[in-house]
Design a protein around this nucleic acid. Structure first.
Lengths: 218, 218
DNA sequence: TGTAAAACTATCCAAAAGGAGTATTGACAA
DNA sequence: TTGTCAATACTCCTTTTGGATAGTTTTACA
């Protein structure tokens, strides 16, 4: 079962997508929101195990638009795929959205079959729907960057488990949540954290996250 | 008139491509080579005004293979487009070729119409033929190198004071310490923090710091 | 087979953080 | 003038953290 979230300010659009997805038993729409702000708020209340796999996001919305919402949500929820749903083929905006973290985009007029196929493919292979001209823009950007940096991450002598936990710490998770993800007790998580702080020579979580970011541990 | 070069070790393949292109009067095959080495040699003898616009390049060749030839030629002739011509859909090699400078790739079994359309499109818009899964790989690489620092620091509408406090939060300071630095009460700091969390749509300090780092707020 | 390191669990405690609400001040715009 | 907003400060309350301490179990390896 693939959990889907739909973010679109028009009720009619949301209903239409749900309609299209409903013929396929693999999909379950678990969250609806009428703009990026509401979406982000609602996401905060969702249990980590119930988070959507794929978010279908409109671009033109009041308050927080699609690009900004994707930018924020994609860093908060790295495991989630974002697909832009748009009526018109506005390459520049789509490109922005993809830079911000979207996996691809789909036109709203796409049939239920195409929609389903694209989403299934996204879930299985990780490849999102991207047109050649968008791909080309991305390619240009890639070439513009120079291949640099390869940080050494082992100077702190963190154990495997500790690295794992540090990574989850940078996600903003708390003891309990990390414990659930790793199937261990929150007490154990705490113990690991304290060890991490000692090895990184810091005294709290935020400083550890800072080290993780600035020293390239994540 | 679009000048085309064909690099393939099999004579039959070259003839086939020429056949397919010949129905279209826009194309003119100006150069043929049976491997990367010969291609590069022949290119040296070509007058700059007569250089091909597009080079169709096989990957599996003796002496210098397609990836190496593209890598060399694309830096020697930056104005020329390289398109990989391949029979099988070997993603990894194609990806290598694209990294090396290819604009895209085409399967050899593609019909003359598709071939012509892709090449015309490449010439006009600069967008090369790229499949979604290749595009996705490129996208991954891009994200690895360019962590979406779109500099859009103002989409969150943080006030000046809030930005200031967010910055101190990323340093790992606590309420009391921040208060001391800014000569305000820790209660006020806390109040600001909660406002920051709401504006960033997060629920704790660590997530805020994560946003700050990944969105380039600091 | 012994041993050291890593991984796990637990409990106590104090400090810190997070959330909600209330309130005052000054600046600036409608 | 009224209204809004940023900044300031406080209280009450709950949850989360960090630290210390004290274990057991697993794993790796010499």
């Amino acid at each position: 079962m693939i959990r889907i979230a739909i973010v679109d300010d028009k009720l009619r659009n949301r209903r239409m997508v749900i309609e299209k997805l409903s013929v396929n038993p693999f999909f379950s729409v678990v969250l609806e929101a009428e703009d990026g702000s509401v979406f982000l708020d609602k996401m905060q209340g969702v249990h980590p195990d119930d988070l959507p796999h794929i978010v279908l996001m409109d671009l033109e919305m009041p308050n927080i638009n699609g690009v900004a919402a994707i930018a924020t949500a994609s860093s908060l929820y790295p495991g989630i795929r974002f697909v832009v749903l748009t009526i018109f083929d506005d390459e520049e905006k789509i490109f922005q959205a993809i830079k911000a973290g979207a996996s691809g985009y789909l036109l709203k007029e796409e049939s239920g079959e195409v929609l389903a196929e694209m989403l299934l493919n996204l879930q299985e292979s990780g490849a999102g729907p991207i047109s050649p001209s968008i791909a080309y823009k991305i390619l240009q950007m890639l070439r513009a960057k120079d291949p640099v940096k390869t940080g050494q991450t082992d100077i702190f002598r963190l154990s495997q488990r500790e690295k794992e936990i540090l990574e989850l710490l940078t996600e903003g998770l708390e003891y309990k949540e990390i414990g659930e993800r790793l199937f261990i007790s929150p007490n154990t998580v705490k113990k690991h954290c304290i060890s991490i702080y000692q090895k990184l020579h810091v005294s709290n979580r935020t400083q550890a996250v800072k080290i993780a970011y600035t020293k390239g541990l994540v």
